Computed example of a mutant assay.
Amino acid sequence: MKQREWRSDRPLDLGLTLQPLRHGGGDPAWRRTADGAVWRTCRTPEGPGTLRAAARDGQVTGAAWGPGADWLLETLPALLGAEDDVSGFAPEHEAVRRAAKRHEGLRIARTFRVFESLVPAVLEQKVVSDEAWRAWRWLLRRYGEPAPGPAPEGMRVFPEPEVWRSIPSWDWHRAGAEAVRARTIVNAARYAARLEATEGSAEADRLLRALPGIGVWTSAEVRQRSHGDADAVSVGDYHLPSLVGWALTGRRADDAGMLRLLAPYRGHRHRVSRLLRLGGARPPAHGPRMSPRDYRSF
């Protein structure tokens, strides 16, 4: 085990900051234990690793195991938002001001792992969350390796790109991921090294959107996590435009309307979107909810 102490110079809500890296209940790569610590596994450039992060009064204690332990501790501050620049963020709407005050410990995390952020984003394309998270759990439990160190039972490490390329069609089907999403992931795995080498969010966006099956929404969801991009707004999200419109004007909005409302926050549009989600304002639901599909055969 290796350890590192780090103190944030701003309020930090550990769970809130790391929550976007969790993909549903029972995520094999993310766990929060009863003591408030967050456990996370990662396929680092040095190999698999497990990180345990715990915070108290702004003081963070990180412990890491496995070949990737040094890398996980070196990048711990960025993971917890040390590179999240809030300069220029000036709430103009009351809903944003309230949410920013209530959730002042929110930071935009940066993982530096593009392909690891891409796979769950592709699985979440155009399906309900439960369906995508079920596929993520199945694939990690089947193809991920056990987490190094004393990680909570059942935790797994994201497989290498070559493993994703080798998954047979019947296992994609058993996971609940149809051929289109499977092909997108398999093809992206061929470019994993180039994706990891991207230095800025704009460069990553260009490369991601040049790959078949990856559009504006998926690229934004990836860059929010891998590059800590606080401006990468998820255009094309099923719920987000209505949520933003309702929170800021009391009326639903489409993507174009959402972008107009978020224009004063350029540089922080993803941050504002997250704050509004946390703020709790939701337009009234209309019609039945879409149910998860399950067309797997065993």
Score class of each variant (00 low, 15 high):
E199M: 07
A192P: 08
H227E: 04
H227T: 05
S242N: 14
G257D: 09
L208D: 06
P264N: 02
A188K: 04
V216C: 11
A210H: 09
M258E: 09
V186M: 14
D255T: 12
D237Y: 06
V244D: 02
A189I: 08
V186G: 03
A204H: 00
A253Y: 03
V244A: 00
E221T: 11
H239A: 13
G200F: 02
P212Y: 12
L243Y: 02
G236P: 01
G250S: 09
A210P: 10
V222Q: 11
L208T: 09
W246A: 01
H227L: 11
H239M: 08
Y265H: 08
W246S: 04
A263M: 03
A192M: 02
V216S: 12
L248C: 11
V233L: 13
A220W: 03
R260A: 13
R190E: 09
A220T: 00
E199C: 08
A220G: 10
L262D: 02
S219V: 01
V233I: 14
R251L: 01
P264A: 03
L248F: 13
D254M: 05
A253P: 02
G200D: 14
A204S: 14
G228E: 09
M258T: 05
A189E: 07
L211P: 09
Q224T: 10
D205A: 15
P212L: 12
Q224Y: 05
T218C: 12
L259F: 08
L240P: 08
Y238H: 11
T184Q: 09
A189H: 10
D237A: 06
E196S: 02
D254Q: 11
L195S: 08
A256N: 13
R194H: 13
G245C: 04
Y238L: 10
R194A: 14
G250V: 04
I214A: 03
S242K: 09
L261M: 13
L240H: 08
M258D: 03
E199G: 14
L259D: 03
Q224K: 13
R223L: 15
G200I: 00
A230L: 11
A220L: 09
D255L: 10
L211E: 02
T218P: 13
G257Q: 11
V233P: 01
T184F: 07
H227R: 10
